[in-house]
Design a protein around this nucleic acid. Structure first.
Lengths: 211, 211
DNA sequence: TCTCTTCCTGACCATACGGTCAGGATGCGA
DNA sequence: TCGCATCCTGACCGTATGGTCAGGAAGAGA
């Protein structure tokens, strides 16, 4: 049965336990919100005694903070596809694909993020005011350049960005509603492809994107 | 000073108190989520002792249920504009205007709704499975008819609806993020108009809407 | 006026929660 | 092998929460 499993080193134990706890926390915070989540629930899901959670993360807030910050990093990274694109077709196309893929693979993260924002960002407000503002300004400049180069219509870059965020994250945040409208079953591979195609088609045509 | 205010009748008292409580509950549930909301907070905001809340609404769940059901009615009613439109330009145009207006005037409601869905609709799942499914089928049929009549491109009606919901509700649910990106101040009248114009412009062009 | 129903609320209760802590187990470096 | 730092956890604690209740105030109807 059991392999001769080398006992874990202290470092490995810490890494593994923090990973397990963060994963469980992500789920519980997404399902119940910060207020509705309990350390006991997270502990149970992680398969650890509650006191052990407090050994690694001193408070519920600290644990939540860690979860949200990780998610924020992911959020920013999704724009890599955006950056070195020659024009809107490739840029927005790749960005939509990437964000919808995230919505599919990590819906919990999107929900935690949404929840944090809806509650007026008590934990990451400072990041919004610095990192997010810079990030947004940068992308808006790119979009404006594409407009100036005649590669797309003169759309307000700001509202275009909001539309991209809203539409892609909707498939995670409102996944339950979408699933219900899909007869109670999750979207299939083909349906996810259809979603991607629809979104890309409407947006790219909507902004008059030219190659 | 004080007018000779006729003392309120029992019926009026009940109406008025239920109204005040529901209004306060809407705000608190939106700010803190169901789990984070407390009856004490709602009571304070309503200016009533906590025990009085339990006189009108026996449990926290009952109060929440009432709030959510009211919101669901609003949600459906926003489609009135949709119904008797001759084509996609008027139909989607009016729907986008109506939903963005709601997002502006009642952002709390949108947040409560979003929260309920994100938590897998514990309270209104039955409504989703019946009323919402019917509603959606009806609108999809209308859209399909417009497609068949050559009034717009052959877009998957389902994903088009999701896009409309996502984009319009984003301005309420993520209003804090938008406000932060707007220098910390709420959108002005002109900016709301710009939002409406941008959304309508992209979507109507995106689906090839013809009058 | 008298009675009945509705409205109101301070004080109280059981529970569940976040967090603490003493003390034991265990890997690690010397 | 020894001493130390890290890891682990059952038992415990103070507090806040949802909810109850007895009893009083006040319209409503006869």
């Amino acid at each position: 049965m059991s392999q001769t499993a080398r006992p874990l080193s202290k470092k490995e134990i810490r890494q593994e336990n923090e990973r397990v706890i963060l994963e469980a926390a992500e789920k519980v915070f997404a399902e119940a919100g910060f207020g509705g989540a309990t350390m006991q629930l997270i502990a149970d899901l992680a398969g650890l005694p509650k006191a052990n959670l407090h050994y690694y993360f001193p408070t519920k807030e600290a644990l939540y903070r860690q979860v949200v910050q990780t998610i924020f990093q992911d959020w920013l990274k999704a724009a890599d596809s955006f950056d070195d694109a020659p024009g809107p077709v490739e840029g927005f196309g790749a960005y939509i694909d990437a964000k919808l893929e995230i919505s599919r693979k990590y819906p919990e993260r999107s929900k935690v993020w949404a929840s944090e924002i809806m509650h007026r960002a008590p934990v990451i407000q400072d990041y919004l005011e610095t990192t997010l503002v810079e990030w947004t300004d940068g992308r808006m400049a790119v979009i404006q350049r594409w407009i100036d180069e005649g590669k797309m219509d003169a759309i307000d870059p700001r509202h275009l960005l909001y539309m991209l965020w809203a539409t892609t994250q909707h498939y995670a945040d409102f996944g339950h509603q979408i699933e219900t409208l899909n007869g109670g079953v999750p979207l299939s591979d083909e349906q996810w492809e259809a979603a991607k195609d629809s979104v890309k088609s409407i947006i790219l045509a909507g902004i008059g994107a030219k190659r």
